[in-house]
Measured scan of single mutants.
Amino acid sequence: PREAYIVTIEKGKPGQTVTWYQLRADHPKPDSLISEHPTAQEAMDAKKRYED
């Protein structure tokens, strides 16, 4: 089974940042970016789909 994890990042100019959620996995390479999402819920949904 595949495993993934969610990383929170800040995008934008200082003082005007927006939080994004990255879905990452250690396949095919360590810390590979799988997808980016504007909400934590979307990231969790993507994580479930990826791991299923």
Rank of each mutant, 00 (worst) to 15 (best):
T19S: 06
Q22C: 03
D52L: 14
P14M: 09
S35W: 01
L23M: 03
K29M: 14
L23R: 00
P30W: 08
Y50V: 04
P38R: 14
E3V: 15
H27T: 11
A40L: 15
Y5Q: 04
E42H: 05
Q22G: 02
D45G: 06
R24W: 15
T39H: 04
T39I: 03
T17I: 10
G12C: 04
P14N: 12
L23K: 01
G15F: 07
G12P: 03
A43Q: 01
G12L: 04
Y50R: 03
T19L: 12
E3T: 15
S35D: 01
T8L: 12
E10P: 05
Q22N: 01
V7A: 06
E3Q: 15
E3A: 15
K11L: 08
Y50E: 02
H27R: 10
Q16I: 07
R24Y: 13
I9K: 06
W20I: 08
G12W: 05
M44I: 12
A46H: 04
P30T: 08
L23S: 00
W20F: 08
I9M: 07
D52R: 13
L33G: 01
A4T: 08
E51N: 11
S32V: 11
T8C: 11
P14S: 08
E3N: 15
A25C: 12
L23Y: 01
E42L: 09
Y5V: 05
T8I: 14
Y21A: 00
E36T: 07
Q41A: 13
R49M: 11
P30F: 10
I34A: 01
D26H: 14
G15H: 06
H37E: 01
K11E: 05
G12D: 04
K47L: 13
E3S: 15
D26V: 09
Q41Y: 07
K48G: 07
V7F: 05
D26P: 13
D52Q: 15
K29W: 14
P28C: 07
E42R: 05
P30M: 09
E10D: 09
G12E: 04
E10V: 13
I6G: 00
A40F: 15
A43I: 02
T17G: 09
K47W: 07
A4M: 08
L23V: 13
K47I: 04
P30R: 11
K13V: 14
K48T: 10
I9L: 07
Q22H: 04
L33W: 05
E10Y: 10
E42A: 10
T17C: 08
L23Q: 00
A46S: 04
G12V: 06
R2N: 09
D52W: 12
R49I: 12
P38C: 09
G12A: 05
K13F: 12
T39W: 03
G12N: 05
D31T: 05
P28I: 08
T19C: 07
P1W: 14
T19H: 06
G15N: 07
H37A: 01
G12R: 05
L33I: 13
S35H: 01
W20P: 00
A43K: 00
Y5P: 00
E10Q: 14
H37D: 01
H27L: 09
K47T: 01
Q16M: 14
K48Y: 08
E51D: 13
D31W: 15
A46R: 02
T17K: 12
Q41S: 11
A25D: 03
W20H: 04
D52K: 13
P28A: 07
K48S: 09
K11F: 07
A43H: 00
Y5K: 06
A25F: 04
K11Q: 05
T19E: 06
L33E: 03
D45C: 10
M44Q: 12
L33H: 03
K11V: 10
T19F: 10
Y21I: 01
Y21M: 01
V7E: 03
Q22Y: 03
